[in-house]
């Protein structure tokens, strides 16, 4: 299926979203709640673009818009820039001190009137990626609760969650680094709960929690060596090299 983005023609597959086609082709549509491999969430609203079908055109959010044959997409118009600025302003008022939001503020030259700034800062912009990441793992320890201005991400009743394995996937996907993950003396603290950390058998650094290891071992029904990602990469790389040395 062929579509046009900013005048150029691109190929897409039925069922793909506009964002997927754009990212694959290196076209930058800003977003905070989109992550490759995740379904689009349509939450942050930064990915608004204009789509024309014949004579009609409308504003859609690219991360949830399924492409259609023959559409023409414009990713930047005055109207879209104005909307993005307003959205960034709203994010800025929510998370005034957040460095990731500040980057957007600079890029789009947004200024918040002093009078509108309130003292209820929250780095979390409710993009929902952490909840999705946790859901994908199958842990479902956190969810979006409440509605309206009281909406937030939390464990059930804000209590330490039984289901959490302390793996930190949520913190890793967070686009604004809003999830608190602290480590000291072999203990990781996240979502109000302490987890014992495990050392890598090669480099000796703490790299994951005992609960996370157990969870994966149960799931895969395997008992692998405890090796951190960095060392794992290194060892595959050296194995790779070895096998090539035999060839040449």
């Amino acid at each position: 299926m062929l579509i046009k983005i900013d005048g150029k023609t691109y190929k897409g597959h039925p069922g793909e979203t506009l964002m997927e086609v754009a990212r694959r082709n290196g076209i930058n549509i800003p977003s905070l709640c989109y992550k490759k491999g995740f379904e689009g969430l349509g939450r942050c609203r930064l990915c608004l673009v204009e789509v024309s079908e014949g004579k009609r055109s409308k504003i859609v959010s690219a991360c949830v818009y399924p492409i259609k044959e023959g559409i023409e997409v414009t990713t930047i118009t005055d109207e879209i820039i104005k909307m993005r600025k307003d959205i960034i302003l709203l994010l800025l008022l929510r998370a005034p001190d957040n460095e990731y939001i500040q980057q957007l503020v600079k890029e789009y030259e947004v200024k918040a009137p002093e009078r509108y700034i309130q003292n209820d800062n929250d780095d979390c912009i409710l993009c929902g990626l952490c909840v999705k990441a946790c859901e994908k793992l199958g842990t479902k320890a956190i969810s979006l609760v409440n509605r309206g201005i009281t909406k937030k991400v939390s464990t059930p009743y804000d209590d330490p969650s039984k289901d959490c394995i302390g793996c930190g996937a949520c913190a890793e996907t967070c686009p604004t680094n809003a999830i608190k993950l602290e480590e000291s003396n072999g203990i990781r603290t996240i979502w109000n709960r302490d987890f014992d950390l495990v050392k890598c058998s090669i480099c000796g650094k703490y790299y994951t929690t005992l609960d996370a290891l157990k969870f994966i071992e149960d799931k895969l029904a395997s008992n692998e060596e405890h090796i951190c990602d960095t060392c794992k990469k290194k060892s595959t790389a050296s194995k790779f090299k070895e096998s090539f040395q035999h060839i040449y």
């Binding site: 307003d86 409710l126 309206g148 201005i149």
Partner: peptide, 23 residues
């Protein structure tokens, strides 16, 4: 009313209504 009854999913609706309410 709407600041509490919006589902809170979109930035524009949730934060936008909140800013309007403050103003």
């Amino acid at each position: 009313f709407l600041s509490e009854e919006s589902c809170g999913k979109c930035t524009t609706c949730r934060e936008g209504i909140k800013l309007m309410l403050n103003i």
